[in-house]
Design a protein around this nucleic acid. Structure first.
Lengths: 220, 220
DNA sequence: GGTTAGCAGATTGGATCCAATATTCAAATG
DNA sequence: CATTTGAATATTGGATCCAATCTGCTAACC
């Protein structure tokens, strides 16, 4: 079977992925207004699909909306960040508690593969791929809990800080730390050790919140 | 100062509140497709604001969307329900832990007032107002935690089961139980007793999940 | 007879045009 | 000189029209 060619079935979807890309790469920086006309022209579509895509992003909290004034890229305060990570702590612990006893060998293998993919991308210095595979690594585990709404909520929380995630991977010191944490996590999963897995995830997250906080407070 | 006259600044907003009303009253029942043209005609607007409102509702999980096939009112399985209540348990406990020590007398008074409003609406037999004031009662407390993202996530979870909430209030036995629980909660808040408040909330929620589960499984 | 091709009808997706609102800036007024 | 009023411009919100896609049915074919 050849690689399926996926044309987005709708323009809104194409617009959505493109705006997301602009957000994570920082081309649309927090605080800047989003001109519908500009986005539409750039992507060669009309303003209608742009507006629908922006409504989705509004729901996810990536942009804030005011009637007749339009959309602005959301800014994340340190308080917001602290809150996001606290909620992640509560919900990721739950996901791990439920998922670990249910894990099969194949899933653990997939998680290990994602870890190696993060490493490979890191050696190539490809930050975008690193963050993508890192996300795979964690959500393969979370999704294994079989709680779709929990997964969805966690994705929203991860999305909220995605803008700043690349910052974390930029430091090579952080990169080796990530590798180490991921390896520990896979060991804990193989041993079906819930407590250890939660502890690793917490350390992992704490290191990240520290780096991102530094990044946010830096450019004020 | 006279009562401010609030005209919805945009049609999408008006459409949004109207569709929400149709959802909670059950006029748009779970599983039924949402015809854009029908909604638009009913509200005297074009399909454009309807589509944008539906995108918001999609983000909130009230409708599910498939490209070129349109929107369908979301159905809630028992598994979904169990998950929603489990997540509420985790997050409401956090909200109460943070909020209770921060509560001032005025907020506690407002919560008490909301409780009396629920009771009054109950005596009138007005289910819609009961659910509204009940929501006020709980979110006055949750919001007091000063964690906007937590409040938002909790609102999403409450929204997801809103369709079935009226069922719970319909039974007069449940109504007196709610009054009793609310009174106990106010006592716990006055005493600044976090453990008691969390325990009351849990009992309150468990009773609700039982009633709603019964309602869901009934009509299958 | 069961399966598939193809043709209406219905419904959604997108583009264009017009209306409503907000913003900016200059001029008039105290 | 500060304030405010008003017009011009930019931007968003909504309506209408056309295109693309899906659905259900009929008929041809194996």
């Amino acid at each position: 079977m050849t690689e399926a060619f996926v044309r987005p079935p709708t323009a809104q979807e194409a617009v959505l992925t493109e705006i997301r890309r602009l957000l994570v790469t920082g081309e649309l920086a927090p605080g800047t207004p989003v001109r519908q006309e500009a986005v539409a022209e750039r992507l060669g579509v009309s303003r209608v699909p742009v507006r629908e895509a922006l409504k989705v992003l509004e729901g996810e909290g990536h942009v804030v909306y005011a009637a007749h004034r339009g959309y602005v890229v959301a800014e994340l305060s340190v308080d917001d960040l602290t809150e996001v990570y606290r909620l992640r702590e509560l919900l990721e612990a739950e996901a791990i508690r439920v998922a670990v006893p249910r894990l099969d060998a194949a899933t653990i293998e997939s998680i290990g593969a994602a870890s190696r993919a993060v490493e490979a991308a890191g050696r190539r210095g490809d930050l975008a791929e690193m963050t993508a595979y890192n996300r795979d690594f964690h959500f393969l585990l979370f999704d294994a809990a079989g709680m779709p709404r929990l997964s969805r909520t966690l994705r929203q929380l991860w999305d909220a800080t995605d803008v700043y995630r690349a910052v974390y991977f930029a430091g090579s010191g952080n990169r080796t730390r990530v590798q180490h944490d991921h390896a520990e996590m896979v060991d804990a999963l193989r041993a079906r050790d819930v407590r250890a897995a939660i502890a690793v995830q917490k350390r992992h997250r704490d290191a990240s919140v520290e780096a991102v906080t530094a990044a946010i407070t830096a450019d004020d």
